[in-house]
Write a protein that binds this DNA or RNA. Structure first.
Lengths: 129, 129
DNA sequence: TCAAATTACATGCTCGTGCATTGGATGTCA
DNA sequence: TGACATCCAATGCACGAGCATGTAATTTGA
């Protein structure tokens, strides 16, 4: 509440704004132009790639995905729909709970993610290293 | 490029994402519900309030504003139009260059900004202190 | 001096996002 | 078991954002 901490938080916030906008807009452009992926789409692939190991049969529930992303339920639903239409992600019904969806990377989805990963990492290095 | 710095930038980025999303979405909600202002609108008022002192006759050029904001030219144009329609900002022609616009806070604009400022500051304190 | 390039701002268009709602499935409890 | 609450995901809707373009004013340079 004192002037000093005010100055602190303002500086911190403007730094955060700058880093966030610079980095995310370059991520968006690079991923889109080089790999045809939006940032949200890449992030979904990234999470699926990291979690689709042996456990749970290579599948991830929408709700689990939602919990790890800064995206509303509806936005995530549409993002996954776009990825599904592009053939990068597959949906599968859940036997135990037919309300829920399971998601998994397709082979093509894994390829695209692996192709895009260096681009993603390079942008982060450039802005955050 | 080494694994360590990769880990560093990834951690840094996910921290930035979390702080940015948490803070900006709460800013957006609080400013909208309490003061009827979008975050971009508040930021425009903030810059105008800070710059509309004696120098340059209390006016700011669109281009100068644009340089200080993370907003495209078109988005800024529309944001200012919204603020103008709400009576919070005034546009004035520039005598020297009739392409350019000058902007200034209206008295009501300054009131709204001063009313919203504590809300804005409180959210920053809460997330960044 | 005047045509071409540049600049400032507005606007048409499309897209991704959030909110509210819906539809269907599951859980709860009397 | 049946009625009601809760939960998951999809969808209608509105809105803010960026890109491309348009319009008008200014600058440039041959």
């Amino acid at each position: 509440m004192d002037p000093e901490s005010d100055q602190d938080v303002c500086t911190k916030w403007s730094t955060t704004l700058r880093v966030y906008h610079d980095t995310s807009s370059e991520l968006e452009h690079e991923l889109q132009s080089r790999h045809g992926l939006g940032l949200s789409e890449f992030e979904v692939l990234q999470i699926l790639a990291g979690r689709c190991r042996v456990e749970s049969g290579h599948k991830v529930k929408m709700k689990d995905l939602e919990a790890e992303m800064y995206l509303s339920q509806s936005a995530l639903s549409r993002t996954v729909t776009r990825l599904e239409k592009s053939g990068l992600v597959g949906r599968a019904a859940c036997d135990f709970d037919r309300r829920a969806n399971f998601l998994m990377l397709t082979p093509e989805g894994r390829e695209r993610w692996e192709a895009a990963r260096p681009t993603h990492r390079a942008v982060l290095e450039r802005h955050l290293a």
